[in-house]
Amino acid sequence: MNIFIVVPAYNEGQRIKKVVELLLTKFSNVIVVNDGSKDNTGEEIKSLPIYYCEHAVNLGQGAGLKTGTELAIGLGAEVIVHADADGQHRLEDIEKLVIELEKGNADIVIGSRFLGVKSNMPKRKKIILFLAKLFVRLFFRIKITDPQSGLRAFRASPVGASAWPKIKFTYDDFRHCTEILFLIKKNRLKFVEVPIKVNYDEHSCNKKLRPKIKMAAELLLDKLIK
């Protein structure tokens, strides 16, 4: 199976090389979308045997994933995995997602940080993710344990049933996570959650938290209008 790993990266110069090298030990097709980084992210990985793509300006994680996914489809991908560039996602979890997808029980497999596997997730993050879960359940009527998970795998085969046209999101920022869930529900796609463990270190803890009140308000407004 032709598996492509899509990794959007923004200012990840310190760790991107390590992350990509690790991915290359198991997967031969890795697409890195440098989303207008201001550091040396591009230089760090340009020599690696990957598909490298660069946004001239920073558009957001969603845009990076969209560009990478469309490229992967153009290159004949059958399975596409979205992963983070900061090394939070473990290689064995990515493999678990692919195996689950290959079973054929779901159109999309999503990694969940809240399915039994313990991690060193900061409390602040736990609270915000709980609120995000509540938000998705209340307003979008979607039951999912980790609505903000960045690790997901889906079929993109041009021959078989491809999930991509049905989950092709429009948001360029972190709202794409919620939009994908909304599209899964709208198009009645089957999704399965797989337990994953995320490595949290100082760098990832200091990053801006994904769900913001402004984003939630805009999502709600969009839902009302659409």
Binding site: V33, H55, A63, K66, T67
Partner: peptide
Amino acid sequence: VRSIAKNNCD
């Protein structure tokens, strides 16, 4: 921006 990036990569 996305289109230019994809074309360059292609």
